[in-house]
Write a protein that binds this DNA or RNA. Sequence first.
DNA 1: ACGGTGCGATACCGTGCGGGTATCGCCGTG
DNA 2: CACGGCGATACCCGCACGGTATCGCACCGT
Lengths: 282, 282
Amino acid sequence: METRELRFFVAVAQELHFGRAAQRLGMAQPPLSRAISLLERRLGTRLFDRDSHRVALTDAGAVLLAEGRAALEAVEAAERRTRRAGSAEPGRAGVVLAVKAGAASELLAKLLHAYAAEPGAVPVEVFLCGPGEQERILRDGRADVALLHRPFDNVAGFDTEDLMTEGQIAILPAGHPLTTRTQLSMADVTGLAALPMPRWPDRDGSYAPGPGPEVRDHTQLIQLITLGRTMMVAPETSRTQLPPDVVAVPVPDAHPVTTVIAWPPHSRSPAVAALVRTATRL
Amino acid sequence: METRELRFFVAVAQELHFGRAAQRLGMAQPPLSRAISLLERRLGTRLFDRDSHRVALTDAGAVLLAEGRAALEAVEAAERRTRRAGSAEPGRAGVVLAVKAGAASELLAKLLHAYAAEPGAVPVEVFLCGPGEQERILRDGRADVALLHRPFDNVAGFDTEDLMTEGQIAILPAGHPLTTRTQLSMADVTGLAALPMPRWPDRDGSYAPGPGPEVRDHTQLIQLITLGRTMMVAPETSRTQLPPDVVAVPVPDAHPVTTVIAWPPHSRSPAVAALVRTATRL
DNA sequence: ACGGTGCGATACCGTGCGGGTATCGCCGTG
DNA sequence: CACGGCGATACCCGCACGGTATCGCACCGT
């Protein structure tokens, strides 16, 4: 199976419409139809149930959609990582480390400092990204290694080492009634009609419906908290980056957050290995 | 990047010889040379350092070899799983479970029995394979889920759930001096010149050099033990399948063996999920 | 009931790319 | 120094892939 065919298939499977899929692929509809039915013939299986007015995935099609997406990502990751490895002087190829902007900054600083002192250390480019984006960045090859946060980030398919575990705190606007408490429970902070939790964008950039404000990054969120529009529950160490006009209150029963260092399991990079070794020794 | 190009590249990277690689690919050498240099141009990077008498991987080439192999495996897995999903009647697609022949037989029986009793259970095909082969079978899509044994099998890249942990026993020919002992240490059993550990085939079917006999499956191995030619260290539960003319002695300091159920992290199969759920509840 | 419309399938055509053969250029070797 | 082995280059050919035109079908509205 060629990646071209897989891309065709995935486009049709997403659109469930040959015409629109063809448009998205920048081609005409007939060759797309032909390519799909040729693929079906080669696989010995229908991938779509289609009459002239509806297109639906078969069971086999659903399998190919899940598996094929993963495969396409692997191919693209291979391409990106090769490009990156090639655009560096030989023997000194850097690594890209993906971290959530504003998270684990102290740990990150210690890690970078300790790693730089290692013999044979290589330049580390830090790729700052939005919440939950590290996973995608690491999967698609834009990064070689990442700091993720369980249980928020999905670490499936990566090798990981735990680095630290911490409790969470609620971050509230100054003067809010709850700020007088010395600690809160999750029941206290979820479902506050006056202070709904913010909504982060999905992978495709869209927002799920809900009462909270739509946010895109941390500064935006902090600003909305100071304005008394929302609140958040975050790991304890984020306390160090808060402005003076918000208040942090521990939430002992919130799920503890574990910061892990993650890398693709087939990584053969000595630099990634050294970075991981350094991280686990902190 | 197309999988065709990747296959070309991997062939050359393995052979480090354009002529032989072309032969293996069933094509002539010139188009292969052209394809590789076109790929290099598209990636903006040399993949091989080559003069007229030597071909060697560049750093970028090494990256592409590791990443590209994983990507090709993902594509082939997608293809196999789709074929399998398509060759079953709709809604009743079976699952393939890979297990090492002769291992965890009691656990396996309990699992199959318990799963069959679940509502919505689906036929489970058991794929019996040689030691360490499960990983490959699961990675390349011939199986959907597998029972693996840490620390022997490499579970990197899979999601896993631990099922059981057990100690190991040494399996010796009856009458051997060590069989009088009530327990042994690893130091006792490794490096016995008279009873060298057997050698299992590599993934490519070849054997590493060493003193032990070359074995291919369990019955062969057991027979060699009864003949007094070798011995083995195996999980405790394998005791139930031993013939009467061998002796098992506990080895408390051997690394404990954990049987895990493993599946590809992107699996969307409800049947696999149900099987895993059943397994963890045993 | 019937023409309209939207969509996938089919028919047919041109071209560019992938593969083949012949040959060159380079270098290590007896 | 002639030879042989190997990768690169030159050139040619066939076909597979993509485009346009059109068909067939099913669901509409009137």
